[in-house]
């Protein structure tokens, strides 16, 4: 046993305090020029590819990804409102970016070549606060094996889903915790009108087995046979199908809600030049071709090639989504939804 000398004690003491600090320092990277902190909700498996493609053209700008689900990234950005950590948001729902915009958190910027993009995909302000990348379209994931077991007929329309046959066979995301869920709800309100929309959801609620927290989970549950039908989005369905799940991806005939992944510069970034470079690149044809690998609908007209397992009629079924309506009525809609459907005892 060695003696504890005074020096050891002193270092113990300072170590105790300094330890925490040192750690923090080492992990909180000092941002130098040529590095961008980019917040994103893009699927984890695509991030490396995105950065690599970008670095082919701009090898000197290093991207530090901060990735999480849409809700969490939005929450993070809002929480950091007075002390933004991000330089750029690349791949976050437009609804979320609208929220940030109305808080004055986005740096308006008109990227080079923005005029080439489909107008639907560009923020209406000039200069735009954000620009879209690709669309993210609601769809129904339909497990053919489980459906056969339960003698189900594939639904063709949203209204079909309220048929008694589907009682307890449906899962959809909770709009209070999932962007996909909100997208569905707001699209129904736009499609069927305010009253019609709520009436539709009342009927749908009778058939819903449960609401999930995340938007991709209903499709994954359908893929795993936990439930025959999951209301989710096409991208997720296609991925599961590619993995061999017995899924059919149905696009209801009335039309489907959609949101887009979009890019924006965070106001107050200390690396505006590189941020602009990144946003400029993010709307190039090359970038859009890259987005097309996973998404059937992208911002750059004429780029999109059909994606394997994606339903073909997707583009024409996309409703003319009023993002402003969605953003400005979000709170009201969610409160109403919660009042009607949340917290009720198990809807078996």
């Amino acid at each position: 046993m060695k003696l504890i000398k005074k020096t050891t004690l002193a270092s113990l003491f300072s170590g105790l305090m300094a330890g925490v600090a040192v750690f923090a320092m080492s992990s909180s990277m000092a941002v130098s020029a040529g590095e961008l902190t980019v917040y994103t909700a893009v699927e984890a498996e695509d991030l490396k590819k995105y950065a690599a493609k970008f670095n082919e053209d701009y090898p000197d700008i290093k991207i530090n990804w901060v990735r999480d689900s849409t809700g969490i990234v939005t929450a993070k950005l809002l929480a950091e409102k007075n002390n933004p950590q991000a330089d750029v948001v690349w791949g976050l729902a437009a609804t979320s970016l609208l929220l940030l915009k109305s808080e004055g958190m986005l740096e308006a910027y008109s990227p080079k070549g923005v005029e080439k993009l489909d107008k639907k995909f560009v923020d209406k302000s000039t200069p735009p606060a954000w620009v879209g990348m690709d669309a993210w379209v609601a769809s129904v994931c339909y497990n053919t094996v489980e459906a056969a077991k339960n003698n189900l007929v594939p639904p063709k329309t949203w209204k079909d889903l309220t048929k008694p046959m589907y009682k307890g066979m449906l899962i959809m995301p909770n709009p209070n915790s999932s962007g996909t869920g909100f997208l569905d709800v707001s699209s129904w309100l736009q499609l069927f009108g305010e009253d019609g929309g709520w009436k539709y959801m009342d009927a749908l609620h009778e058939n819903i087995a449960r609401y999930t927290h995340s938007g991709s989970k209903p499709c994954k549950l359908a893929a795993a046979g936990e439930i025959p039908i999951g209301i989710s989005f096409a991208f997720r369905g296609a991925k599961s199908k590619a993995k061999g799940a017995p899924l059919e991806i149905i696009v209801p005939e009335e039309g489907v809600g959609w949101d887009m992944e979009a890019t924006a510069i965070v106001a107050g970034t200390d690396n505006l030049k590189d941020a602009q470079t990144l946003v400029d690149w993010s709307i190039t044809k090359k970038a859009n071709v890259m987005y097309n690998a996973g998404y059937a609908v992208v911002a750059y007209p004429g780029v999109a090639k059909p994606v394997k397992f994606f339903p073909e009629n997707l583009l024409e079924k996309m409703i003319p989504n009023d993002f402003e309506f969605a953003a400005n009525n979000r709170k009201r809609i969610l409160t109403e939804w919660q009042k009607r459907y949340d917290g009720k005892s198990d809807p078996k």
């Binding site: 929480a79 969610l334 198990d346």
Partner: peptide, 24 residues
Amino acid sequence: KVIGGQFNVLAVDIYKQVIGQQNF
């Protein structure tokens, strides 16, 4: 969170309010 389904409990509510609705 994992198995609660529709059954709301306090701890999950905190998560839903903060992460889902950004209602801190």
